[in-house]
Amino acid sequence: MIGLLIVSHSARLAEGVQEFVGQIGGDQIPVVAAGGASDGSLGTSVERILAGLEQLRTADGILALVDLGSAVMSVETALEHFSGPPVQISNAPLVEGAYLAAVEASNAEATLEQVAAAALQARELTKVYE
């Protein structure tokens, strides 16, 4: 089972993506929101991210989906203090990437590589057809 970590500058945005993704997997896929700065204001928090990673410790792998700016650096910093299952940071757009990752992860046999590849397909996702 692959877990998803949702990292956004906004705690509400991260929780919203978690809610949205929950529509696919229900309780099947472990999805943890780690949004906002330590005091809940806009920003990212290494502590919150680390706590989120700890919540996903029992997964076989973790895909972190991020918004922008400091999100990547905060996850990378948190990873220096985390010794659990392997973690990949996705280059996919947050909402669409999390959605596609959840679809792939709903297969309990899916590997981290497969879930990460599915999330990346969000970069090519067509929304508006000519």
């Binding site: 330590s38 806009l42 290494v46 400091s70 650096m73």
Partner: peptide
């Protein structure tokens, strides 16, 4: 690192 929520936290940290 634990108190700065922006990019400067991980960078200066």
């Amino acid at each position: 690192v634990s108190t700065v929520g922006g990019a400067s936290g991980p960078l200066y940290g």
